[in-house]
Design a protein around this nucleic acid. Sequence first.
RNA 1: GCUCGAGUGGUGGAAUUGGUAGACACGUUGGACUUAAAAUCCAAUGGACAUUAGUCCGUAUGGGUUCAAGUCCCAUCUCGAGUACCA
Length: 1133
Amino acid sequence: MNYDFRKIEEKWQKFWADNQTFKAENHSDKPKYYVLDMFPYPSGAGLHVGHPLGYIASDIYARYKRHKGFNVLHPMGYDSFGLPAEQYAIQTGQHPADTTKVNIEGGVDKEGNKIEGYRKQLDRMGFSFDWSREVRTSDPKYYKWTQWVFIQLFNSWYNKDTDKAEAIGSLISKFETEGNAAVNAVCDDETSIFTQQDWKNYSDTEKQQVLLKYRLTYLADTEVNWCPALGTVLANDEIVNGVSERGGHPVIRKKMTQWSMRITAYAQRLLDGLNKVDWPQPLKDSQTNWIGRSEGAEVTFPILAFPEGEGTTPGYMTGGNNSHLLLEKAKKLRNNPAQAEAALWESLKGKNLGDKFRRQHLIDDFIVDFVCLSKKLIVEVDGDIHDTQKAEDEARTKALNERGFEVVRFRNNQVLGDIDAVLQEIKEILVKKSIPPSGARGISVFTTRPDTIFGVSFMTLAPEHDLVAKITTPDQKAEVEAYVEATAKRSERDRMADVKTITGAFTGAYAEHPFTKEPIPIWIGDYVLAGYGTGAVMSVPCGDQRDYDFAKHFNIPIPNIFEGVDISEEAFSDKATTVIANSDFLNGLNYKEATTKAIVELEKLGQGEGKINYRLRDAVFSRQRYWGEPFPVYYVEGMPQMIDEKYLPIKLPEVEKYLPTETGEPPLGNATVWAWDVEKNEVVSNDLIDHKTVFPLELNTMPGWAGSSQYFNRYMDPHNEDAIYSPEAINYWQDVDLYIGGSEHATGHLLYSRFWQKFLFDRGVAPKDEFAKKLINQGMITGTSALAYLIREDNKEHFVSRNWYNKLVSDLSDPSKEKMVPPDTADFEDILKRLTDGTTEVSTWMPIHVDVSLVNASDELDIQAFKNWRPEFKDAIFTLDNGEIYKGINPTSGKPGGEFIVSREVEKMSKSKYNVVSPDAICEEYGADSLRLYEMFLGPLEQSKPWNTAGITGAHSFLKKLWKLYFEESGIKVTDEAPSAESLKTLHKTIKKVEEDIENFSFNTSVSTFMICVNELTAQKCTSRSVLEPLAILVSPYAPHIAEELWAQLGHSESIATAPFPKFEQKYLVESSKEYPISFNGKMRFKLELPLDLSKEEIEAEVMAHEKTQAQLQGRTPKKVIVVPGKIVNVVG
RNA sequence: GCUCGAGUGGUGGAAUUGGUAGACACGUUGGACUUAAAAUCCAAUGGACAUUAGUCCGUAUGGGUUCAAGUCCCAUCUCGAGUACCA
C-alpha cells in the first residue's frame, strides 16, 4: 500500500466537513481554550504560501489542545471591507460585494480569470476551523453590531474620577445639577465652563454641541491627513513615511468635519494594560512608543504686548521668602488637622472639584488652610477662636488679597453641619474664577524639562498656531505671513524630508519669563509641530539640540545653565548628569530636584503645573469611501442623530458610481435612496428630504479597522440577532487565549481593538479589559526570486548563465586577475571584449525576474518555456553554464546542450517579481500534510524566512517513511507484539520533546524530532501497536490527514481529533550508563562509556586509568580534573 | 538619530541552568537498483594539513571572566524591524 495523499486528504476533509468535527459548543465540562488567527482580507490574488504560516501554527496548537482535553474555539472569517475591492469597482463597475463574494467563495472574475476562492484554498490545507461561526465584516448581519458599538461610543463619556467610560445620561444629569466646572472628564480642549443655569438656558442644538465635546465618538473640525489621489482621509497608522500606506500617494493636512474616536481617554490604560498581557516585547514597545507618554509641565508665558491691545500682563507674585520654620509648621499642621479640616480635605483633594487644592500651604509668610493655586483661591476653616482675632484675620485677608488671592472663610460648624453647601459655594467661586483658555492670557507650552526654565532665551510657535496672527507686530507682519504661507505649501513629506534646513521668522512680540520677568522674543518655526503638545515650545538652546540649531542660525543668545558643561559646540541634554546653574532657586539641583522645585514654584505663580502628555491622537473615524460600514447617523440642523438600535443595520445604499461626486462629496453622495424617515424609521429616497420628518444620512463610511475591532468576541455568538453576543457566551469564552497574526498590526488593529475592548468592559458588555492573553507574531515568508542576467545592446539581447555572470563580474572588478576567456563562442567573446574595453559597463547587466515555476530545484531554467512566457525574448541569445550557446532542444536526446542556471535572491513575495508560490500547487504535488510540516520546519515561527520549494521533498519523504512504518506492500503491518525497550525509549523521548516544543511554539524543532523518531523506529523495525498508535496522535496536530487515516486503519471508528495526547513516562528513559565526553583543557578528545551511579572519584579514577588519557597527557600530571556526573569530564593540565 | 532584534557550514536552521558546536533537512558528490528517468536505498559532506591514527583552525570582529563560552561581561562592525523635528 502506497501513501496516496491525494485520496487521503480529500477523504478526511470531506469527513470533517460532513461530521462537523471541529464545531465548538458554548458549554462544556471541558476547560475552554480560544485560539484565534487574524482574519484575512480576501484579495483577488488568492493566498500564497506565506499566508497560511500563522494559520498552520494556530491549527497545530488548537488540535493539540483538543488532544489535551480542552473545548477549543478556533474560528475563521473575513475582513471583507476594504480598498482593493472598491478600486476594482471603480475600474470595472462591478459591485464590491460581488467581487468580494467571488474572492471568498470562488468563481470567475470579469476578465474571465478563474478564482479559486479563499475558502477552498483554506479547506485544502486541512484546518480545524469551526466554519459554522464564520463572520464577514461586510455582511449587514455582522456590521449591524459594528454600528451598534459606534452608537454606544456616541452615548458615552469618559469620567476621569472613576477612570472609566460612563453613559452620557450621567453627564447630562451632572450638567443639570451643577454645570460642568467640577466635571472631570476627557473632552475637547476648548470646552468652556458653564453653570447649571447656563445649561438650562441652552437651546437643544447648543446642548448637543456641548455634549459632542464629551462623547467618546464625536464630530469635529479636525486637521486630517487628506490623500487627494485616494480621495479620502487616512489615520496616522495608515501613513508610512509621509505617503499613503496603500499606493504610496502624497498626503496633505486639511481641516475637515470628521468623526473621531476619543482613544486618548484610554492612553494611560492602554499603556498599563500592556503589563497584563503576554505579547511580544517589540510589539509592546511599538504601542508604548505610539502612545508616547511624556511627563513634564505645562507652563504659561504671559505675552508682554498685544499689538491690538487685546490683553495686558496679568498680575502675579514673586517667588517669596519661604522660611524652613514655616514649612515645618505647615507640615505639622497637615499631620494634625482639625475635624472640620479633615472632612473638607476629603472633598477637596485629588481634584475632586476639578481643580487641585493644597492644604496647610505657605503663601509668603502665611500658612493657609487650603489653596487652589491655579485659581488663586484660599479657603480657610475657622474655629471659635477666630471670634477673638477678627482684626488679625482681616489684616491677613488683606495681605493675601494684595498678593492676588481671594480668601473665603467658613466656620467649623458650617463644614461639619452641611458640607455640601460649603462645597457648592467653593465650586461656584471656582467657576467664576475660571481662567479663559490659555491663548488669551499668554502662550502655553509643554516641556519635559521645567528644570531648564532659566535657560529659555526665546519661544517658538508652530506656524499654524492660532496666536501667530494676533501677536505679530506690524513691522514683522510681511515676513511672518510669507513664512506661514511657504510652510503651508510644503507637503508633509517635504517637511519631513528636509529636517536639516532651519527656517523660521520673528514675530516681533515678546513674552515674559515667569521668574526673571525678562522679555523673551517669540519666533515661529516649522520644527515645532502644531499637532503635539500645545503647538508652542519654550526654547532652551543650551539643553535641546533643535533649539540650539535654531538659535545659532538666527543669532539668538544661548545662555548656559548647566554646571561645568561646555555648550560651545552642541546642546547638553543628559538628564542623569545635569546640575543646574545660573538659575536662581534651582542652582545646584539635579534634574529631578530642579524639575519638582520648578513645578512647585510655577504652581505658586499660577503659571504652570505638572502635566503628562501623550503623543497619541484621537483617531479619525470617517472615510470618504463606498466599501465600508455606513454610519447609523442622520442630521437635524447640522447636528448628528443616532438611529435607534432597533432599526439596525443601516445597509449600504446602491450607487451608480463608486467615485466621489462632482461636488466633492464622498461616494455615498451618489446614492439616491439615502435619507432617514424618523416616522417610518427606514431609509427613503433623497427626494423626500424635508428636514421635518425626513433627514439626510451621513455620507462617510467607517474605516477598515472598525470591523476588526470586535470580531474576536462576535465569534463567540456569531448568529445572535438580539445582541452583539450573549452574556452567557462571553462569560463562557471570556477572551482569546492565543492570538496569532502579523506584527504590522501593532499600532492599528491591535491598539484600536484594545481600546474598544476596554470601552465595552467599562460599559459592562465584555468581562475582560484585555481581549487576548497571549499573542504571537508570525514572521513573513519571503520569496526566492529567480533572476536571469541580461545584457541588452543594439537590439541584441544576451542572457548569461549564473556561473559566467559571476565570473565576468568578479574578474572585471579585480584588475589583477587574468581575464577569463570563455569557450569558443564568438558572441561571448564579443561581450567580454566590450565589457573589458569599457564600451559596456558591468552595471548595465539587467536582472530579469523569471517565473519561479520555470526553474527546477537545481536552479535550471526551462529556456523554451521561458521564451513562450516572455515572447519578447524569443530571439535572445542564451549562454549556458558550459559556455555554449543554447541552440534549442536536441531532437535526439531531448535535452538542451547544457544548463542555464539562474541566480537567486530573497525578496518579498509579489506578483511583479514572479516569485509567488501558491499553496494549491504545493498541495497538489505534495499534499497538505507535507506543506504544513514543511512550513513549520522552515524555522522559528516568529522569524522571517525565505521559501524554497525544493526543500519540501524532505517533509514529503518523512511522511512516506512514516507511512511505511505502518504499511508494507500487502497492507497493514502493525502487530500487537510488545515493543522493544529501545522503541519505547524512542517514543517517550519524542512525546516529551514534542509536548515541550508545542508549549513553547517551537514547531520547527518538533518536526525534526518526528523525523528522528521515524528514522529510529524504522531502524528498529518497530511494528508494535503500543508504539505506533501514540505516534499517530503525536503527529496528528501537524499532519492531520495522514494521522486520521493511520488511526482509522488501526481500527478506530472515531476521529483522532479528540484522542487523548500520549502520556510521557520517565521510566522508559532511565539510563544506567552515559557516554562521557572526556575533554582536555576544554577540548573534547574522546568518549568513554561509564555507569551513571559512579561517584566523582570513581569517574576520575576510570578516566585517569584510560590509555587515551595517558596518551593525551604525554607524561604530564594534570593540575585538576573537573567531573560533572552525568555531563562531562574535563582534565586540566 | 532613538528603541528593539539578529549575526553559526553551500542553504534553512539545531544546540536545557555556560558542559560533545553544526541535530534535522535541503543541496552537492559518489555508489546501488533501472534500457533510461523518476522514486527508493547506501555512503561522504565546516575548513586546512595528513588521509592510518591524528593535528590545527572554526559560531561577525577585538578583548575579558571561567576548569569550560555560540551561550556571560565590555568595546566595535554589519544587517533587519519599528519610529522619527514628540519639546
